[in-house]
């Protein structure tokens, strides 16, 4: 998908920008918007580059830095925190051998913090792409990640 196509589909007014950027980002394989992408969105929508960059940097679903194929987002809000989300983060960092915010060497995973995922009843929670995982314990992490590795191998 091209930036122009995304905007043709969603519209070129400022209120349509986030949807267009999400759709476009999804169509790229590296889960982020490049400098050129952002400049093109700005040009097409007649918004300042700084504004489009500001928006892209604000929303956790959008990124201005290169990310892996699968984005693992661990909820960083209070209910998850008090339900030991820190252990989940430690386990992810241990298995993937990267720190929070980083991407694995094979480009398969990026781990990030996220604001509330809206499922405090299942704290601690995380999401990978559009799939939600709740009531997490460290021992569940390995098998969850494996399913994504297998998907890749198939």
């Amino acid at each position: 998908m091209q930036v122009k196509e995304a905007l043709d589909k969603y519209g070129r007014t400022p209120d349509k920008l986030i949807g267009a950027m999400l759709a476009y980002q999804k169509s790229t394989l590296c889960n982020y918007l490049t400098e050129d992408d952002i400049k093109e969105f700005a040009k097409e929508t007649k918004l300042p580059v700084s504004r489009v960059y500001s928006i892209a940097s604000f929303y956790s679903l959008l990124s201005t830095e290169e990310r892996g194929e699968n984005i693992v987002q661990v909820c960083y809000d209070v209910p998850c925190y008090i339900n030991d989300s820190v252990n989940i983060v430690n386990e992810l960092e241990k298995i993937l051998e990267i720190k929070m915010g980083q991407t694995t060497k094979d480009g398969l995973f990026t781990i990030e913090y996220s604001s509330c995922l809206g499922c405090c009843d299942k704290a601690p929670a995380m999401q990978i792409g559009a799939t939600l995982y709740g009531n997490l314990t460290p021992d569940k992490i390995s098998s969850i990640l494996s399913t994504y590795r297998r998907k890749k191998d198939e």
């Binding site: 300042p48 580059v49 700084s50 504004r51 960059y53 500001s54 940097s57 604000f58 929303y59």
Partner: peptide, 14 residues
């Protein structure tokens, strides 16, 4: 952005 119409600066991040 408003007076000079340039918008060089903006908030970045959250």
């Amino acid at each position: 952005s408003e007076v000079q119409g340039l918008a060089i600066l903006d908030y970045v991040g959250r």
